[in-house]
Structure formats: structure tokens, C-alpha cells
Design a protein around this nucleic acid. Structure first.
Lengths: 231, 231
DNA sequence: CGACTACTTGAACAAAATCAAATGGGGTGG
DNA sequence: CCACCCCATTTGATTTTGTTCAAGTAGTCG
């Protein structure tokens, strides 16, 4: 094959939901049919509406999936980091991409040719099962999004986001914002302005943000915001 | 088998995304492992968090999938009619139901035991592929929901809903609201009060609603609302 | 240094939720 | 058959929430 996988690439691929629990042979066939690709921040990896020729997996960096609602507006659907795959569904069904993928940091992506990919699925049932698992994960992510958009206010969604950032622990915690604030705002479905103001409100609940460094005085306070929804 | 499928049942099942394009043998095995069940309006078919013991398919009537955000609030995730399956993903992955299903009209449901169902998937790759197709459909539905929730106002979402109701045709059209208005409101992510008021606004755009009968004077007007978003 | 971009802040506005009170069937029991 | 109750829907007044437009700050990269 023309491309070389690094040891690290293979590790990431093997660790993904899509390819974990896959026997050696299947993994090898997949590696043989794929190739790594590097993108710079801002590059479009693929566009909504184009024929879905590839299934993708993030090896490194961060990718934003968004959807063009109208000529001017776009909705961020999800944001993916290392070991996460995207467009598997689209590439499997053989239609066109249902979202646009953009590199929001420099990143390295594994690409798998859709037609060869489909052949593998047909031949090796374990791959189909892996895809089902992956689809299930994506389904749950979107399920959570819909739920949050329909029931939580902007402040609650932001508090929820921060809680996920700092992890499951209790008490005081710190974390780092994984990407630009406007991107987080878009992900939460609010404007950058609202985001900024809402962060201000959260200051009174023990949340301090300087640059992209987050300090939470007490996770319990944030959890109250998420559920009961107050300033 | 203890249960009898009616001719109509089998038709509906064969017409579903989940079971279409399935060879005779696979379909027979599935029919042998499933059973019909009848529910009255308001019955809970299964609850979020319970072990996912069944995969379901609507034969008749309408089912609401919702998610318990908090102790008091619930978000309607999607609403399913005849030939649509639900909980396939949950029952496949063997975890617990990720949503609660409620009959919002009297309805007849085909239930398939999850464990037997999983065996079939392993044995017959075509079933796995069918499930992938089905997962893909659900994914796209949720994708659309997220997009709409993030970019469209309540009036735009309602206009969009009505447009979907009356179908793709142009000019003047009529339709019937498929279920109670509060349910539609919940599906669109707005309160019943807002729903009522928003319908009022749409009156000025040629939308007349009496009881559950909808008349649209000109679909083009509605389409304008959806995209450009005005009163 | 200067342009560019990300972020913040302010004020006015618009959208939608909330609280509260009608209205209006549809069915049930008398 | 009628009175009554329950529930869905509507309407009104008010408040909350979030957007928009506009301006300003700060950091970054050429």
C-alpha cells in the first residue's frame, strides 16, 4: 500500500468504538483499504451533499460536524476527537454526506474508501456489528442533544457542558476549554454573546474562566443549575 | 407459535425499513420469534432505563418516544406511526431502553424478543444490514431535529411541520393534525400556549385550523416562513 | 505597528415561557 | 336527556430568556 500507518495510528484505530472487538483479520483488511490524511485548522474534510465516498476516523485533533440549514445559517451537530469515527452511516448507505466536516484544529484523519468498506461489511458480519455499535453511540449522542435543547435553558446547557468537561468527580475541579468559545456556543445552540453573558452568571456559582482555563469551586452547585435551572 | 399474525400485520412488517429487502427465510425466522401486542391510548409500552428486552414495530396507531430529563420535565424525542420500528438499537446493544415509549392512540405493536433477535443478527448478515439502514434513518431524523432546534424559531418549526403534513405539493393544500396539539407542541419543543399563539400568527399567512383540520392557502408562503423566518 | 479575530459589554428588542383565567367540547353519571 | 366534570385549547398579562446591533477591548499574527 502507498500509505504507512504509524504505530500510534493503528493504536487509535483499534481503540475506536467502530473497530474495537474486531478480529485481527478484519482489522488488517480495513487498514489495507484505508489511508491517513492530514488537515489544517479550517479545512473542510467533506461537505454535506457530496457523494459519501469515505468513512472517517479522527486520529488526532478535533473535527466539527455541522449542517447547512439555510444559505447563511449553520448548525453545529457534534464535535469529535481522537478515536471517534464519523460519516460511517453516510458512507455505508451509499448516499451523500448528511453533514459537513471541518477541522477545527490541525488534525490527522483515517479515511476508508466507502465502496471497499461496504464490501468488507458484507463479507465480515463482525464489522456490521461494530458499525451497529457505532451507530448506536451516535444515536445516543443526538438523543441527548435533542433532550437538552428541548428541556434546558442556555445556562443549564452551559453548566452541563462544564460538568462534562471537568469529569465525574465531586467538589472543586479544573479543566481546559477544548476549543474556541464561539464553537462551544454553537454546539450549545446559543450565540457567542449569550455564551459570554451566561458564563458571567455562572461566576456567581463558583465558576471562574480565564482564557481557556476553567475552575469550578463546587460541582454540586453546577449540578443544581443543570436540574433546577437558576441563574 | 402461540400468536397469529394477521395478513395485514405481515404486510406492515414486510413494508418496514427494518425488514424490507429481507429474504423469505429471514423474515420467517423473525415472524416466528415475534408476537403482536395491543395497547390502549396512554399505555406505556416500555420505560427508559428498563432492560431492553424487546425490539418494537408499529403495526397500527401512533407511539411517542420521550426522554425523562428531570423528575418533572420530559422531552418528546420522536413520534412513530405504522411500519416504523423503535428500540432496535437499544435491544440490539443489550443495555437498557434509552427512551420511554407511550401509545398516544390505541395501537398494535409487533414485539421481537431481544435475545433471539440478536441471535438472528449474528446468523444472517442481511438482518444486520437492515438494522444499519434503520439506524441510519433514525440518525437522520435526529440530525434534522437538532438542526431545526438550533436554527429555526418556533414559528418556522411549526410552519415546517405543517408543510410536512400537507406533503410535497405546491399551492393550496389540506391535511389533518395526526394527534393532539399539545403533542405536536412538545415535539416541536414549545409550550402548548406558544403553539396556539404561533398558529394564530400563521393565520395571516393563509393557514386555517379548525379542530384538527388544516387548510393551507399557499405552501409557498409557508416555505418563506421556514427559511426567512417572519411572522 | 497595524490589521484581524476572538471575546466582552451595553442597550434595545424580540421570542417564548410562565402564571392565570376563560372557553369549549366530550363523556359520565344521575 | 341533561348537568356536570374533566381535559384540551385558547387568550391575556407579565416576566424571563436570548438575540440583535453596536461598540469597545484584548490578544495574535503578519
Amino acid at each position: 500500500m502507498a500509505f504507512e500507518w504509524t504505530r500510534r495510528d493503528v493504536d487509535q484505530i483499534a481503540r475506536s468504538v467502530l473497530f474495537t472487538n474486531l478480529d485481527e483479520d478484519s482489522l488488517d483488511s480495513i487498514l489495507a483499504e484505508g489511508a491517513p490524511a492530514d488537515y489544517s485548522r479550517g479545512d473542510l474534510i467533506c461537505r454535506q451533499g457530496e457523494p459519501a465516498e469515505f468513512c472517517h476516523l479522527v486520529l488526532n485533533g478535533t473535527v466539527k460536524l455541522s449542517r447547512n440549514a439555510g444559505p447563511d445559517s449553520a448548525a453545529v451537530i457534534s464535535i469529535h476527537g481522537p478515536t471517534q469515527s464519523f460519516m460511517e452511516g453516510d458512507s455505508f448507505s451509499g448516499g451523500s454526506y448528511s453533514t459537513t466536516a471541518e477541522a477545527i484544529t490541525n488534525c490527522r484523519i483515517a479515511r476508508f474508501d466507502a465502496s471497499k468498506w461496504r464490501l468488507l461489511i458484507g463479507q465480515q458480519p463482525s464489522i456490521a456489528l461494530a458499525m451497529l455499535g457505532s451507530a448506536s453511540v451516535h444515536l445516543r449522542i443526538l438523543l441527548g442533544q435533542v433532550e437538552k435543547l428541548k428541556t434546558m435553558t442556555a445556562s443549564a446547557r452551559l453548566a452541563d457542558f462544564i460538568l462534562n468537561l471537568v469529569g465525574p468527580g465531586a467538589g472543586a475541579r479544573i479543566a481546559t476549554l477544548p476549543y474556541e468559545k464561539q464553537m462551544i456556543a454553537a454546539q450549545l445552540g446559543i450565540t457567542p454573546e449569550s455564551f459570554s453573558r451566561t458564563l458571567g452568571q455562572l461566576r456567581s456559582c463558583g465558576v471562574t474562566v480565564t482564557k481557556n482555563h476553567v475552575e469550578v469551586a463546587d460541582t454540586a452547585l453546577l449540578r443544581r443549575i443543570v436540574s433546577r435551572d437558576e441563574a
